[in-house]
Design a protein around this nucleic acid. Structure first.
Length: 406
DNA sequence: ATGTGC
């Protein structure tokens, strides 16, 4: 008995989909088929239950490659991912009114868009504090190496974006687990500089392919060949952006903990369990005895015993999971619930009243600008977890009590 | 997702 659905078409590698019991759009299947036609796909594509259509390739997919990388498959939010920390606090240690805690977190972490949108918070540091400067020192040598060759990448929001949240589906949450223990969890990526690196190499791949691009099933599947100068430059830049994203989450977590200590006077520890995982990235891994590149576009590494984070939408449950090391999935799991409708559709379909009702149990923003994050715009997270029970086991179930969004 | 231009 297999736990995946097999999609096999002519002239394409097989597509293994862990999507039993969850909806998959036809458009997503078409898109997967196009990616599976590329000659450098290694063995098969692995598709996670949160799969949905993306630009060029599908979100919620694992793309193993040999000899080439598709920069658009990694995307522009390079290194986007999650960090979570379990604290020694219990639900009863939290104040009844959670608004001051939310306000303190909002003060500690710049969030929202850069440049400043009218009436919104500035999403970058005016003067990065000492902690952020220290983090930036770790990233500086790698950044210098990239910008020596591509000086225009210096003209980006880089150190001013380190330790900042961003917009859209990026968030900070205070959660409770099944035993009412308090957790801190957040979602963010490589911000302005990672975006610029992503966009630059996506364009470079298209240019390098010249006339051959018309033979691709989709121009957003343009790839860089291993052994070329631009491939090596992309590897350096994408890995640097992934490290930026990882440290960005770590820096924010530090500042959220400090903000919590201002509001909650009871001493607490935070080292009990910590996970910091990417879900938009590429790295070299060994699978089926071969060294290959694995691009996870909205997917999380789930090697045997490895911890990961699968967040639900605003108002839905989130999960701390442990990988089962399923080789057929290239040791992967989903990165969330996955959308069932676009942001535009969600804003048309739901009202502010719907959003207030759906997030009644969470201290969070409840305005027109976050309607697209309403739980009903996402797949049922329980069904998504059932579909991937051969990939991960659930370690903790979290529910939000405070949510900060950019 | 971000930044920029409409």
């Amino acid at each position: 008995m297999t736990h995946y659905n097999l999609l096999q078409t002519e002239n394409a590698k097989p597509i293994k989909m862990w999507t039993k019991g969850v909806p998959v759009e036809d458009e997503a299947k078409t898109q997967l088929t196009k990616t599976a036609q590329l000659p450098f796909i290694f063995k098969h594509l692995a598709v996670m239950p949160d799969v949905h259509v993306g630009k060029g390739s599908t979100i919620g997919s694992v793309i193993p490659t040999m000899g080439a990388i598709i920069p658009a498959a990694v995307g522009v939010d390079i290194g986007c991912g999650m960090i979570a920390v379990q604290t020694s606090l219990m639900a009863t240690d939290l104040p009844d009114n959670l608004l001051p805690l939310r306000n303190e977190i909002e003060k500690a972490v710049p969030h929202g868009s850069t440049p400043l949108k009218l009436g919104r918070d500035q999403g970058s540091w005016e003067n990065p504090p000492t902690l952020i400067q220290q983090y930036w020192q770790q990233l500086l040598p790698g950044f210098k190496k990239i910008t020596e060759k591509y000086p225009h990448l210096e003209q980006t929001n880089n150190y001013r974006h380190l330790g900042t949240l961003g917009t859209g589906n990026h968030f900070i949450e205070i959660c409770l687990d099944e035993a009412d223990r308090v957790w801190i969890m957040l979602h963010s990526g490589s911000r302005g500089v990672g975006n610029a690196i992503g966009r630059f190499f996506i364009e470079l791949a298209k240019k390098d392919m010249e006339v051959h691009i018309k033979n691709l099933p989709d121009k957003d599947l343009a790839y860089l060949n291993e052994g070329t100068e631009h491939f090596d430059d992309y590897i350096d830049a994408v890995h640097w952006a992934q490290e930026f994203a990882r440290l960005n989450r770590e820096a924010m977590m530090n500042n959220v903990i400090l903000a919590m200590r201002k509001i909650i006077t009871k001493p607490f520890t935070t080292h009990l369990l910590a996970v910091n995982c990417h879900h938009n990235y590429v790295q070299k891994e060994k699978h089926f005895g071969e060294e290959i590149f694995v691009t996870r576009k909205g997917a999380v590494s789930a090697k045997k015993g490895e911890l990961g984070i699968i967040p639900g939408s605003m108002g839905a449950k989130s999960y701390i999971v442990r990988g089962l090391g399923n080789e057929e999935s290239f040791c992967s799991c989903s990165h969330g619930a996955g959308r069932v409708m676009s942001r535009t559709q969600a804003k048309k379909h739901f009202t502010l009243e719907d959003q207030i009702k759906a997030t009644a149990h969470v201290e969070c923003r409840k305005d027109m600008d976050v309607i697209d994050e309403i739980p009903m715009a996402y797949k049922n997270i329980e069904a998504v977890m059932t579909a991937q029970k051969e990939l991960v086991e659930i370690v903790h179930q979290l529910r939000q009590v405070v949510c900060v969004k950019g």
